[in-house]
């Protein structure tokens, strides 16, 4: 098979792959930012003092976790038009990614905040720091240190999840492979090239995780 592996065609399609590579990056990036914001909101509701908000957040998080992303994506893609909402594929895709990833982010943030030893809060309180000063100087910096590695893990998941957006015809890395398959009947060249691009992103994010862990090594109490 290797003899028939057509590198020239891959080079011909490289502009397509590159533009789809960047599409994947910006779709995942938008999803990451959106889900981070969503995660903070949902986490705040979940661990906050109002039982109603906490319950709503719980239902949201558990529903997302118990259903596949693809189903959620189709739910919005096929469902929103019937409500009169006409959104572009990109917006629908980012919406689905944001809501899906947001639930996992909420749990990551929750675990991080709750892992800070209560003694830290007590020490800050004893010095006379008020709630905002405590949060800003003591709790949040430590929470960020603890949640950064899992959040980078979630970023990796987001990049892989973005592949599903190809099934609603969004141009991105997997779709590039599909296009090569349908136009040139070369699925191997197409999808293997996509795979290589995904691995580039994956190894970069992995390296970022290791680098950040080395920077934060003083956090090991």
């Amino acid at each position: 098979m290797l003899e028939t592996f057509n590198f020239r065609v891959i080079l011909e399609y490289m502009p397509l792959f590159l533009s789809c590579f960047f599409a994947t990056l910006w779709l995942s990036g938008a999803g990451l930012i959106g889900s981070f914001v969503m995660g903070i909101i949902a986490c705040g509701m979940r661990i906050g003092r109002f039982k109603l908000l906490s319950r709503i957040a719980y239902v949201y998080i558990e529903s997302i976790r118990s259903t596949p992303l693809l189903v959620q994506l189709f739910f919005f893609y096929f469902g929103l038009p019937s409500l009169g909402l006409r959104m572009s594929e990109a917006s629908t895709g980012i919406l689905a990614l944001t809501l899906n990833s947001g639930a996992y982010m909420a749990e990551i943030i929750r675990a991080g905040v709750q892992s800070i030893p209560h003694g830290q809060v007590e020490a800050a309180v004893s010095s006379g720091l008020n709630y905002f000063q405590r949060m800003r100087c003591v709790i949040l910096p430590q929470a960020i240190g603890v949640t950064l590695p899992p959040m980078l893990g979630q970023a990796i998941v987001l990049v892989k999840d973005s592949a599903l957006l190809s099934l609603i015809s969004l141009p991105e890395l997997t779709r590039a492979g599909q296009i090569m398959t349908s136009e040139r009947f070369m699925p191997a060249e197409g999808f293997l090239t996509s795979a290589v691009f995904y691995l580039v992103i994956y190894y970069f994010l992995k390296w970022l995780t290791h680098w950040s862990q080395r920077r934060l090594i003083y956090m090991q109490t």
């Binding site: 003694g119 007590e122 020490a123 010095s127 006379g128 956090m219």
Partner: peptide, 19 residues
């Protein structure tokens, strides 16, 4: 806040800010 500023508290587990 005013009161706690006048009182220093030392914990068994130190509770230093690790960061």
């Amino acid at each position: 806040t005013k009161l706690r500023a006048e009182i220093g508290f030392v914990f068994q587990q130190f509770n230093l800010y690790p960061h």
